[in-house]
Design a protein around this nucleic acid. Sequence first.
DNA 1: TAAGTGTATTAACACTATTAATACACTTAA
DNA 2: TTAAGTGTATTAATAGTGTTAATACACTTA
Lengths: 140, 140
Amino acid sequence: MILLDYRDRRPIYEQMVEKLERLIASGALEPLTKMPSVRSLAMELSVNPNTVQRAYAQLEQDGYLYTVSGRGSFVTAESEWKDSRQSKALEQWTEVTRQARDSGIKKEELERLLQDVFVEEEAPDSEQRRKAGRKESEDD
Amino acid sequence: MILLDYRDRRPIYEQMVEKLERLIASGALEPLTKMPSVRSLAMELSVNPNTVQRAYAQLEQDGYLYTVSGRGSFVTAESEWKDSRQSKALEQWTEVTRQARDSGIKKEELERLLQDVFVEEEAPDSEQRRKAGRKESEDD
DNA sequence: TAAGTGTATTAACACTATTAATACACTTAA
DNA sequence: TTAAGTGTATTAATAGTGTTAATACACTTA
């Protein structure tokens, strides 16, 4: 399902969250899909079940999974996590924008830069990848 | 010159950087002002000289101070640090804006929010404080 | 040359994060 | 009912990192 990079200095559970999050956000793992059990994925990756559990807990926290005790963990529908993802993004954006303002950057400069960032969007974004059913950078 | 808050969980040197940075950015410490020596400030605050040294090194890294070995550390002119501060702010802003875009937030929403943030600016900002020679939230 | 300055190196220490070991609780199906 | 599969909670071992301290060095000036 995923591959761990042992040269990556980040903790295992964090790698797992990132990779699984991408799989879900990209649509590679469709809603209602049953995730591997913590033990089976732990076995597959040769890590402790608690490590998988921690990754799953984080993903659940972020709304990407839901869990039924005794049954397993499942992928949630996009509508479940899209809102909270955007809320967090907005909050962070506002804070950073205030910092930029306080450093003396002019509003007009940010307005110009904003246009540029949204022109980049011509490149395939997660939404387009999802609809096309494609995926990228997800190993194995 | 500054006061440490021992209830603050952050490391001492980090508190010092923050407080001194404000003093400098607000203009309370004018350019060319000689900073206290690492030993004297360490004595005054009852911390190790290396802790002060670390704070000074950070401030120098960020362009707020410059040092002449054997002579002391001095406050730099605003022009010295303003650019790098804005560069960092812009870089961070661009990254966060991309994240917001990728989460599906529309350009128009960010444009609206941008106006709001710059309306807040009616409150006194560091630039205005500096010109008025006032200060705030700097203890002792 | 002495006193004051910043700097480099090393180590002690504490703290936190990460992972593991283990036992518990729930669900399902035989 | 029970066994096997599931997630969960608790505790601990461990490693790693960050922070601070001790100390010696190097430079500047009077």
